[in-house]
Each structure stands twice: as C-alpha cells, then as structure tokens.
C-alpha cells in the first residue's frame, strides 16, 4: 500500500551550522523497525531533491522510536551566511513527511487519520 510518511510519523527539523537535522518519530516498535530498514539516507536524499545535495548521516534512537538525519551542507553556509529563504531548515521536516512510501497492507492499523482541516 502506498502512503505518505506523514500518515505514520511526526518530524521536526532545525539547523546544525551548515547542515540541517530532521528528527522523525514513529509510534510503534513495528513501524520503527520497518523504518530502520526502509527510510534510508538514500531514500531521503532522493526525495529532498535540490536540498540534500551532499552526504546524509542517519542515527537511530530505538528508545524514542526515532531516526535522526543530518542533511550535510543543506543550508548553504547556514545562519547569517546563507541566502536561502529557509536558512535554518525549519521546513525540511514538513517536506520529508510528504515522501511517498510503500508499506505492508497490515500497516493500515498504524495509519493516523488526519481530520478534515478545511472545516
């Protein structure tokens, strides 16, 4: 089944000098272990085209069911040096949550239902 990362995860991003970091948090052991296998640095790099232009490092935090990605060089100098509109990578987490992913059908029980926000 094809879903977006947003359907099974939360995320937050910020700056680490010239790089941004994106922390992605899951809600169950099963989904976390799936993510360790499938949400790889290469997968994130493919998705963040034009942002992740260099190396991506990933750290695992099994206690928090979370993965931490360092998107090296994504802030083009960072801080006051950067000419980017988002010089601190504040939006990178929201962008990564829009990544398309393929999950097993039984993951439907883990999918978070987003309410109708237009109401």
């Amino acid at each position: 089944m094809k879903i977006k990362l947003l359907d099974i995860a939360c995320a937050r991003s910020g700056d680490k000098g010239d790089s941004s970091n994106i922390g992605i948090a899951f809600e169950s052991e099963e989904v976390y272990h799936w993510a360790v296998e499938k949400v790889t640095p290469n997968k994130v790099k493919d998705h963040l085209k034009g942002i992740a232009k260099s190396e991506i490092v990933r750290y695992e935090l099994p206690n928090l069911l979370s993965l931490n990605f360092i998107i090296k060089g994504s802030l083009e100098g960072g801080g006051s040096d950067s000419l980017l509109h988002d010089a601190q990578g504040k939006t990178h987490a929201q962008l990564v949550l829009l990544m398309d992913i393929e999950v097993p059908d039984f993951f439907s029980k883990y999918i978070y239902t987003i309410p109708d926000l237009e109401k």
């Binding site: 939360c10 937050r12 700056d15 922390g23």
Partner: peptide, 16 residues
C-alpha cells in the same frame, strides 16, 4: 510523547 520527542530531536547531532 510526540511533542516531547520532537523537541528532544530538535537541533540534534549524534544522539549518543
């Protein structure tokens, strides 16, 4: 748990 986890991960490098 999620709002706190998001903040724990904020501006994080090597978590260890």
């Amino acid at each position: 748990k999620l709002t706190v986890t998001e903040q724990l991960l904020y501006e994080m490098g090597d978590p260890r």
